[in-house]
């Protein structure tokens, strides 16, 4: 009896209205949260742009060495250093990462070795970047005697990029259907012919995308470079690689994020302006690299639809 009573009094319309309202409310909360995160990104960029505008628009900022006088200080040695270090990092990431990815995906199978390597790479991906810096300091700088050089920095950032490149390589190879391989084998191709004639060309776009994304993360890495002892005050450029390759590798260096960090830590406000300008340059670089990666990914998706 009581149940019937309650059912009669139950207002289904206002109940469903409430449910719909809560549903809508959560959708709005979610949208606001998403918007908030994007606003944060926007705020960071605008803050840097406004704070650093005086120096960003000043062409001398890109052409001068660091200096005691904030108005004269520039990022010449920093962006040249970043260029060298990143070239090294990309070199090592390609040399070590792509073969490792190919091995795991094409040759590894489900064997014990490949399982160990796989688990190991996912562990490496989660190691804090400053620990890579300690590795570089203890092994490359002091035990291998590479010094606080471009070579050490390139190697360090290359190792940091390694897990991302391996995963990207594996994923883009995995997308190639088995039938392609079987067709190649059926025509008498060996494994490496299949690899070089089919697998690599088809996966190149995806691998490149992963490589650029990894590089866009590595270019802003500061902690490992500070740990290996990158200098902050470098008023010369490393020798050009076509003149003195070894000298270039052994040259001390500074890089954009290091230079920026140095300027932030100074008490004078004028240096903060420089820091903001350097930060904006870094942000633009990271943005450009991400855009290229985004465009490439889109292209690749279009090109190969199995």
């Amino acid at each position: 009896m009581e149940l019937q009573e309650r059912l009669r009094e139950f207002d289904i319309q206002s109940y469903t209205k409430g449910v719909r309202l809560r549903d809508k409310a959560f959708e709005i909360v979610g949208a606001i949260a998403t918007l908030l995160v994007l606003t944060f990104l926007f705020a960071v960029s605008v803050d840097l742009l406004i704070d650093g505008w005086v120096r960003i628009k000043d062409p001398n900022f890109y052409k001068s060495f660091p200096s005691r006088f904030p108005e004269e200080a520039g990022i010449l040695s920093a962006w040249v250093g970043t260029l060298y270090v990143m070239s090294g990092a990309i070199f090592w990431a390609v040399i070590l990462g792509i073969p490792a990815g190919i091995y795991l995906e094409e040759y590894g199978g489900k064997g014990k070795i490949s399982r160990i390597i796989e688990a190991n790479i996912s562990n490496l991906a989660a190691v804090p970047s400053i620990v890579y810096g300690l590795l570089a300091l203890g092994v490359f700088v002091y035990r291998f005697k590479f010094g606080e050089s471009i070579l050490t920095a390139g190697l360090t950032l290359g190792l940091l990029m390694l897990p991302v490149v391996v995963v990207a390589t594996r994923e883009s190879i995995r997308r190639i259907p088995r039938s392609i391989r079987e067709a190649a084998y059926a025509l008498g191709a060996t494994r490496w012919e299949t690899l070089f004639h089919h697998i690599l060309p088809y996966s190149a776009g995806g691998i490149l995308t992963g490589l650029i994304i990894a590089a866009s993360r590595a270019i802003g890495e500061t902690a490992p470079l500070i740990t290996i002892g990158a200098l902050t005050f470098i008023a010369f450029l490393p020798p050009a690689p076509w003149q003195d390759f070894i000298g270039m590798l052994k040259s001390p260096f500074t890089a954009l994020p290091i230079q920026m960090f140095n300027w932030i830590s100074r008490p004078q406000e004028a240096f903060h302006t420089n820091a903001a300008a350097a930060g904006f340059v870094l942000l633009v670089l990271a943005f450009l690299m991400n855009s290229i990666a985004f465009y490439l990914r889109f292209k690749v998706r279009r090109k190969y639809q199995w």
């Binding site: 990104l41 993360r217 500061t222 920026m260 942000l283 990271a286 991400n290």
Partner: peptide, 24 residues
Amino acid sequence: SVKPWLDFLEAVPTVVYGYFALLF
């Protein structure tokens, strides 16, 4: 349209975030 921006947010150099934390 949101996901690429979230990806980009991951690539923002951490030292830039440091600047933002300290001075904003």
